[in-house]
Design a protein around this nucleic acid. Structure first.
Lengths: 233, 233
DNA sequence: TTCTTTTGTGTCAGTGAGACACAATTACAG
DNA sequence: CTGTAATTGTGTCTCACTGACACAAAAGAA
């Protein structure tokens, strides 16, 4: 026996929800399709799973083709499998969400795919069930970022505490108290002073930190709580 | 265009990790296979996704076939997709984990599938990557039950606070303080007194509660914390 | 009736969260 | 050169909740 007889085989695709942060807003990397189906409309970046390709490898490949990046934060969210979600043919889709530092990506690769960074607040309608995917991925981001130190993945290597606070305020769309935020964050021991200051500021220059990588790795699955419970519902 | 040309179609299966609780230990509903491949070995309950079947429907069908139950707690965990995970033929597998009240299931259906409830501590080795699936599902159960009021799904309609405590102690394999547990639990407002007492006890009979369904539904996605953070790593 | 086991509830000290105020830094305007 | 406006860094106080702990009541067994 080298195959299962009489069973249906199905198309399986990957769709990537790629988040970035420009210092003010959460952004999505979306594609204006210059190919069929639904040419001319916006969609997530995706592709089919190949015969000899693990799912995670497939997701990494697709992300690399679009951004030129390799070591980025990627996480499988879930698989979508409603029978009629793709009007062309039944296609299962495995959602991956990715967090990237918006300054790092390969601009040429993005341009050649006809992709753009678009603010979540200005997102156009997407094809198929991609709007629902974005909503689910955003929920997942909110959920995980509230419990684990995930947000750093969206910032450059050196960052300031006010930048991180702006990121959290953008993710949860709430104001946070500077003093409490800073106190909590520093108490985690995740930050390492660089001794440098952020020269881009027009007023008092904030101190630049980098992640304490050892502690970040070892504490990633531990819990923290930077968001009021009421936000997590 | 009514199909995508030149793309590989793949087999997609469902595998269900079914948890139960007998009052002392967490148990799994496992199958001693009387069919190929790997006949005679233990495995999770599973099946192939049919052509016109949504994934969630497929999981519900498989659970119904084995247990005769319909309204049970089911949740998609993730999809496994390594190329060589199934030696017969590449098969993707969508993991679902289910929580059922062990007293409710259809004994005949279970027997006819050659299935048994087996304590987690006495689990035999399972076929393929099913051991890894169980480990991942158990992690998910620990994670979610620490944050959301999930455990009730494993208990009968009427239950006592000590029963629920034993359940948590079994899930996390730690002792919990009766007094603090009870105080926290009652403060959630999730419990409704029934006025009855547990007649099975040989000493002081504990009070029976039932879930406040309204509050359970509305607070399910809110957060609670019944487990020390150190357990959640 | 006494003993043993289990259940229900109260107290107390320490920790952490959230609300809040003030001093220091920096560019820019006058 | 000086003052001003914006932004950053840090300290304090109160309240609530957690975790550690003790005692009284219920119920069957001896």
């Amino acid at each position: 026996m080298n195959h299962y007889a009489n069973q249906t085989r199905l198309l399986v695709a990957i769709d990537c929800i790629i988040f970035g942060f420009d210092g003010q807003e959460i952004k999505l990397l979306l594609i204006k399709r210059n190919f069929e189906p639904e040419q001319g409309k916006w969609s997530l970046m995706g592709g089919f799973v190949k015969e000899d390709e693990d799912l995670d490898v497939s997701a990494s490949r697709i992300l690399y083709e679009l951004t030129g990046l390799t070591n980025i934060y990627v996480e499988q969210v879930q698989i979508f499998g409603n029978v009629r979600r793709d009007p062309v043919e039944r296609t299962l889709s495995v959602m991956y969400f990715a967090l990237i530092n918006i300054a790092d990506h390969d601009t040429d690769a993005v341009r050649s795919h006809n992709a753009s960074w678009i603010s979540l607040s200005q997102k156009p309608n997407l094809i198929f069930d991609h709007d629902e995917m974005v909503a689910i991925a955003m929920d997942r981001l909110r959920y995980k970022a509230a419990l684990h130190p995930l947000g750093f993945e969206l910032l450059p290597e050196k960052f300031t505490i006010p930048q991180l606070q702006k990121l959290y305020e953008a993710v949860y769309n709430i104001p946070l108290d500077r003093r409490n935020f800073s106190r909590k964050l520093l108490s985690t021991g995740l930050l390492q002073e660089t001794g440098e200051k952020d020269e881009n500021s027009a007023t008092k220059k904030a101190m630049l930190y980098r992640l304490n990588q050892d502690r970040y790795q070892s504490r990633f699955n531990a819990f923290w709580n930077f968001v009021p419970d009421s936000m997590l519902v």
